[in-house]
Amino acid sequence: MRALIIVLLPFLALFLQTTFFRSFSIQGAVPDLLLILVIFYSVFNGSTKGAVYGVACGIWEDLYQGRIIGVNAICKGITAFILGRMQGEVFQENILVGVIGVLGGTIINVALLFMISFLAIPGFSLNRAILADVVYHGVYNVIISAPIYIWYLRSSRGGVLREGQSI
């Protein structure tokens, strides 16, 4: 059951991102539910598993977008690997772990996307509009991370995501 939920969650997250949350965008920005999911998975399962899950979710997103395959896989994989270091170092029951994790993860992910864009897209440059977009995106991620973290924590402790129901 746990395995099935973990596989289905990215599918559901991308579906909600591309439909439901577009109706509730903040200045055109929508939350990156896939990234939030990857961050929480890393915080609870560590760097290696997190990186694999991050790469898998990133590939899924890349395939949906049909553009440069691998960009999101790399960014989400590295972000998950870094955030996964928090496992065992933080008190997971504290909701701030989830919120700060998402804030940090969003910053890392965006920084990696910028780096790849600078390298891969000729003439790419940052401007106020792009930065404003990133800020709205980050704020949205942080706001929505709290309820999702509460659900994830409860599910991991005694619900469908509880360890022991190994994949």
Binding site: N45, G46, T48, K49, A51, V52, V55, A56, I59, L63, I69, G70, A73, G77, S166, I167
Partner: peptide
């Protein structure tokens, strides 16, 4: 399970992930 914590398994998992990524890029 598939996700166990040994470093050796972790390395193999990462390698397998990279291989899948390459295949997806090819089929993509």
């Amino acid at each position: 399970g598939l996700f166990t914590t040994s470093k050796k398994k972790g390395a193999w998992t990462l390698l397998l992930t990279a291989l899948i990524l390459l295949l997806v890029v090819k089929w993509g």
